[in-house]
């Protein structure tokens, strides 16, 4: 069964690929941002892979004065990609596991098809965990979950340079509750789509 489905999927992907190549003619990249004033990213900043962040990132840290300073909030003026309205539904994981379930694979296969028809978008795959593990263990687990999804999407023909992985560990739970339902919801890979 899975083999058959893979084959069907593969031919579908080839079709989609051919269609989109013919339709687009040439692959468009977002124009490079001329930003001499920008906080200079390192030489290896991810600019080639993802759209550059807004030019003025705003401050990272507040100057703390000696012993007496009290911080005041400065305006933070940058866009996030944390919107939850992704066209690509989350996939979910078992406790302490980064293994893709049959259902998760099936979801990722649909994601791959959609991504081949929307070659203008890029995806950040966020790995999330429930709150029952420790901070750093969960960051490693979230990384493995995101990478598992990344690996599978790439194996289905999605270009690797359109995908990025980010582990959030237990730092950004979708449901802050402390119960089985919330935990299950939070053990997920989320697909944040940007153009």
């Amino acid at each position: 069964m899975p083999l058959l489905r893979h084959r069907q999927l593969a031919s579908l992907l080839v079709l989609a690929l051919a269609f989109s190549l013919a339709a687009c003619g040439s692959k468009r990249r977002p124009p490079a941002l001329a930003s001499p004033e920008a906080i200079t990213p390192g030489p290896s900043e991810t600019g080639d892979m993802m759209p550059t962040q807004p030019i003025d990132e705003g401050p990272d840290v507040l100057a703390v004065e000696g012993e007496y300073a009290t911080g005041s909030d400065l305006e933070a003026d940058y866009a996030t990609t944390f919107e939850e309205g992704s066209p690509l539904p989350d996939i979910h994981f078992d406790l302490d596991s980064a293994a893709l379930s049959e259902q998760a694979r099936s979801t990722l296969e649909r994601h791959a098809v959609w991504l081949q028809t929307r070659r203008d978008v890029r995806v950040t795959i966020e790995g999330h965990c429930d709150q029952r593990g420790t901070v750093e263990y969960n960051l490693a687990l979230g990384e493995q979950r995101a990478r598992a999804a990344w690996d599978y999407l790439v194996s289905l023909g999605v270009a690797a340079d359109r995908l990025r992985t980010v582990s959030y560990g237990k730092e950004r739970p979708l449901d802050p509750g402390n119960n089985e339902q919330a935990w299950a919801l939070n053990r997920r890979a989320h697909f944040s789509v940007s153009q």
């Binding site: 906080i39 990213p41 390192g42 030489p43 290896s44 900043e45 991810t46 892979m49 401050p59 990272d60 840290v61 507040l62 100057a63 703390v64 004065e65 000696g66 750093e136 960051l139 490693a140 990384e143 990344w150 995908l163 990025r164 992985t165 980010v166 582990s167």
Partner: peptide, 19 residues
């Protein structure tokens, strides 16, 4: 105390993350 920060100190590139 100066309010300055250096991003990506370890020069991760592409898809790599640092914790």
């Amino acid at each position: 105390f100066e309010g300055k920060s250096v991003p990506n100190v370890t020069a991760e590139r592409g898809n790599s993350q640092a914790f």
